[in-house]
């Protein structure tokens, strides 16, 4: 298995480092005495083991991403779901997906849109209130609607965008710590990237295991968007959907699902 091969390589690497260190011991012993040399070796060892552990964990997370869950019963527990609304056509496509998803399986739902986008959350609220009406007396778990700072607005200068990017990342982290979703649905543009990367880090650290589903916009016929490219190449998206057959041929791990609009 690929994983075994990787861990084997890591062990070789560590052994090699230990040999180098023993050379260093003679050097340190002669100059600083035995205690200091020992402290140095222990410190180095801890650092190397730590780095190796993180590396193995990252490899494991990447390896597990994209692997489906075992079949569950009909009455199984729902997944808390984060829905990232990307404005304009992106939001319209995402709401089309939500229309057909079984709401009792994806609950509670948290919607996120850019702070500058005042239409998307309104549309999501409309959808949720019509769902609540349909459900009637059944108690509907409250959905949340959140706004997030964007790292860079169209036309913003690069100098100020360093600061706004930091603010945006901090804000995304704060939101993700609070909601810790199990399922993330997104379809670009850039708003979803910090959220998905934080979700990946949560998986590495063990805070929360989540599943990322990304639907590339219908406007992308020949090439992926930057967001799509990042999530596909870094294996962050568990399942990746494209709406044109040309794209599926270029990115074989993607599912071709036809037009959503």
């Amino acid at each position: 298995m690929q994983l075994n091969k990787v861990s084997e390589e890591i062990i070789h690497f560590i052994l090699l480092r230990i040999q180098f260190q023993s050379l260093g011991v003679f050097f340190f012993q002669s100059r600083f005495g035995f205690d200091r040399a020992m402290a140095f070796i222990v410190a180095m060892g801890i650092i190397i083991v730590g780095i190796a552990a993180i590396f193995i964990r990252v490899v494991y997370v990447v390896h597990r991403t994209g692997k489906p869950l075992k079949p569950r019963g009909k009455a199984s527990r729902p997944f808390s779901t984060l829905i990232v609304l990307g404005s304009g056509g992106h939001t319209a496509e995402m709401l089309n997906v939500l229309q057909v998803l079984q709401k009792d399986r994806f609950s509670p739902r948290v919607y996120i849109a850019a702070a500058t986008d005042n239409m998307s959350l309104q549309k999501a609220r409309l959808l949720e209130s019509s769902l609540a009406k349909e459900a009637g007396e059944k108690v509907v778990k409250a959905s949340q609607f959140l706004q997030i700072y964007r790292s860079r607005e169209v036309g913003q200068s690069y100098l100020t965008s360093v600061w706004t990017t930091l603010v945006a990342i901090a804000h995304a982290l704060w939101i993700m710590i609070r909601i810790r979703p199990e399922v993330i649905l997104c379809n670009g543009p850039g708003t979803c990237i910090p959220l998905c990367i934080i979700a990946f880090l949560f998986k590495v650290v063990g805070i929360r295991w989540s599943f990322v589903f990304y639907v590339e916009s219908i406007a992308r016929v020949q090439r992926l968007s930057l967001s799509g490219f990042i999530l596909y190449k870094l294996h962050i998206a568990d399942q990746f959907f494209v709406q044109w057959p040309q794209l599926q041929r270029k990115y074989p791990r993607a599912h071709y699902v036809g037009c959503l609009m």
Binding site: P68, L69, K70, P71, R72, S76, F79, N96, V97, Q99, V100, L101, Q102, R105, V183, F211, F213, V215, D238, Q239, F241, Q243, H255, V257, G258, C259, L260, M261
Partner: peptide, 15 residues
């Protein structure tokens, strides 16, 4: 178009 293929794959993936 419609989004049922997406929903189907997501559901199947999650078991």
């Amino acid at each position: 178009g419609d989004a049922t293929p997406v929903a189907k794959i997501i559901n199947r993936f999650l078991g």
